[in-house]
Nucleic acid binder design. Structure first.
Lengths: 211, 211
DNA sequence: TCCTTAAAGCGACATCAGTTGCGTTAAGAT
DNA sequence: ATCTTAACGCAACTGATGTCGCTTTAAGGA
């Protein structure tokens, strides 16, 4: 799947090509709407991110947005998918703890900056199945890329070869999400480092080794 | 603060007692409404938990609910506060990893049962400041009680005496919330044990020791 | 250039969350 | 027993969200 541009009424079979038109007005409208979503989010935050506001800002009719994106969650999902195809890679600092700390600092930044698109998407994921799916895809992609961090640590001999990369990565990052998203404790600049160090220690002790 | 029964228009000074009436009809209405919230949540889940449905079910007028609880978040906050004064204590299994595993199993249960009041409250906390506050209070209380687990482990000599209890407890439980609430991965019965073991290992390696 | 039709525009409508003003009931004090 | 007034009942209203049927525009193929 590439860029999700809204509901796609399935061709049904292999007849004559059903003539999609993703190149002209549709694409222009989509670009204007997604730009409006980003701008509205940056200027007024998630609370004022309504379909009406986005449509007005994009100079597009309300029903157009409702038909193509269904709701705010659908809009955010499309924004996220559009931004997901970037070339992000985890930093290489030379040590597992360093890599995890750098990663955690990025997560910390993404969750505490105001306004935070990530935080908005998390909030939206509790109201919209589309947003929830997009977020799941996004995180799945990010964690997959982060497995490189674990591979490097294994190659350096820091941790066992049979280490479960996902479990290690979740152990390192989960405390950040827990504090900043769920517990809503005031941001602690030491948190990224602490969580990274704890996960790295557990990993080198074989806590994430497969049976 | 005891049981929050709605807005309390501050006496302002020490005049004659302003004559609250928390013992009669008010209390009856509150009990009926909170019962209705629990019943509605159990039968139809969070999505159908509206102020109107609760009011109808409680045999009370809509405006009464709006005035006393403001919104669904306020209702859930009151339910949680009412249920927060229980006598819950973490189990004592004889080892840190055992205690954390038992704890994690309870968290896992609370988050995966359908319907889950905890999950409903988390969802509500993104829409209602009152629900967010109630949830914060609830978790703060629970984590405070769980510090007993860490104290016991210190006394047994499993972990350093200077261990930061909160950080250890968050490290143990956060992966559960991350998987079940945010990542929405399918429930893994091994997860409570895995996360507990990793946190216990990190703790014994001194990962949560104070400087 | 012309034709077909997907997608956008438009306004009317439906629904629901939440508010307001006012009358009614009954808790608790005298 | 009587009085005061907090809390509840009631209905009408506002505003935002989301839908529907129809018309208009223009993309892309002939």
């Amino acid at each position: 799947m590439t860029s999700a541009a809204g509901p796609r009424p399935d061709d049904g079979g292999a007849r004559t090509a059903p003539a999609r038109r993703p190149g002209g007005r549709s694409a222009l409208v989509r670009a204007r709407v997604l730009d409006a979503v980003r701008a509205q989010l940056l200027e007024h935050g998630y609370d004022e991110l309504t379909v009406d506001a986005v449509a007005a800002r994009a100079g597009v009719h309300r029903t157009t947005v409702y038909r193509r994106w269904r709701d705010v969650g659908g809009l955010l999902a499309d924004v996220l998918d559009a931004a997901g195809g970037d070339d992000w890679r985890p930093r290489d600092t030379g040590s597992l703890e360093g890599d995890l700390t750098a990663l955690n600092r990025e997560v910390h930044q993404a969750l505490t900056e105001r306004p935070s698109i990530t935080a908005a998407l998390i909030a939206a994921s509790f109201r919209s199945a589309e947003a929830a799916e997009a977020l799941r895809r996004f995180w799945d992609d990010r964690y997959a890329r982060c497995e490189a961090v674990v591979d490097r640590a294994v190659r350096r001999g820091e941790i066992p070869a049979a280490t479960d990369a996902r479990r290690l990565l979740v152990a390192a990052t989960a405390p950040l999400y827990h504090h900043l998203v769920l517990l809503r404790t005031p941001p602690d600049p030491g948190l990224p480092g602490h969580a990274a160090r704890a996960a790295a220690l557990a990993a080198s002790a074989g806590a994430f080794a497969e049976p």
